[in-house]
Write a protein that binds this DNA or RNA. Structure first.
Lengths: 213, 213
DNA sequence: GCGGCCATCCGTGTATACATTGAGGTCGGA
DNA sequence: TCCGACCTCAATGTATACACGGATGGCCGC
């Protein structure tokens, strides 16, 4: 793989996982020595991260962006617009098979969530697969790009609800509703179920971030 | 200004204006000599254009992407999700002043559109200002980024309706409805008026592209 | 002692040299 | 004559040297 891509993925993972905290200054020479590549691929990675909105060029050096409360609200406004639309379109045009498979897996989610850390990982894998299935069903490259952008930022704040099993069980139920609506080919219901899910998710995220603050 | 930004803007303008037609291969050395900068800024510009979706890395060299009929439909699906949401939010939270100004200008649009090329430019300036006013009113950086992306691609296909005065007059009326809905602080009406406008715009764009083909 | 100015240094911006990879053409053998 | 392999070349990927600019710290003057 190209060194630039590796640098990008490494830095992105570190930012999403919170290893690189908001406010951290990423200097080109410093990162190039740390990652073992020259400045050129590092620059490329930083540019791409800036395009993603994960870092910000700030005069001297590039800074990891913060996730403020207002940002969470803003992100969820965009998510609602995109994901409600996507769910509606997926309800109109999709193959049943992948959604049937995801439905079965979601039904097992409560048991999964009782199994600690590895169950958590497995649960998030289901959610990610649902996102992928919807993206594939919608078959809209522009919408797909926009969705991937919000998923990136969502992953960053997902850590907020990570240790709230009760919320995650509820979320699994909401996801199941969305899948059922898609399988029922009911666009309006799929949209509204998505709206409901995002509303609950936002409420929880805000409460959690308020606790953390 | 930085050479990389200049290269990016130059190439972007050329692509949007159709000077660089879809399928054109942009090679780094070739462009660097043409633009009078070294490969480094050109690379940066090409990367950014790729992130915008205006070019595509294709094995050897970077190729200007095409705008197929399916792409137009896909783009409008995304536009509907984003712009309907944005119009609704703008209706809920905005300062009246900029929208009052735009309303007055839109009322003069029919006269403007009778004035040939320079009137056309003036008209598109109003539409762009409306986009900016909505973006400012919504005050959502994530949504703003997504909107800018679709505006970029919309500008590319705007050329299709450029020489259809009848359609443009109708579009001015539709924009006026949206502005009125925002000023009336009626989110649902603003969303639906946007939906209607995009539907008409898409219908026209598809008809025009079918003629061109 | 404080404030402003100048010099220096650090970090990014740009150019270019070197490495690598992949595609296309040509030559040889079946 | 056709197929395949190897070689060559060109274009991208990477590294590094040089240019430029701003910020900071020290020094001088008031």
């Amino acid at each position: 793989m190209r060194a630039g891509d590796r640098a990008y993925r490494t830095l992105r993972t570190e930012i999403l996982d919170g290893e690189l905290e908001p406010g951290t200054v990423l200097q080109e020479v410093e990162q190039s020595t740390r990652l073992g590549v020259s400045r050129t691929p590092v620059r490329e990675a930083l540019r791409q991260l800036a395009a993603d909105g994960l870092v910000e060029a700030s005069g001297r050096g590039t800074v990891v962006t913060a996730v403020e409360r207002d940002d969470i609200v803003s992100l969820y406004e965009l998510r609602e617009a995109l994901e409600a639309k996507a769910a509606g379109l997926a309800a109109q045009r999709h193959e049943d098979a992948p959604f049937l498979a995801i439905r079965d897996r979601l039904r097992e989610a409560p048991q999964l969530l009782a199994q600690g850390e590895e169950g958590l990982v497995a649960y998030f894998a289901i959610v990610d697969d649902l996102d992928d299935a919807i993206e594939a069903a919608v078959a809209n490259p522009f919408l797909a790009t926009a969705l991937r952008s919000v998923q990136l930022h969502s992953a960053r704040i997902r850590r907020l609800s990570r240790h709230n099993p009760e919320r995650l069980r509820a979320a699994a139920g909401e996801h199941l509703l969305i899948v059922d609506a898609i399988l029922a080919r009911d666009p309006e219901l799929a949209s509204h179920a998505t709206h409901v899910h995002l509303h609950m998710s936002l409420t929880n995220a805000l409460a959690t971030s308020a606790d953390a603050a």
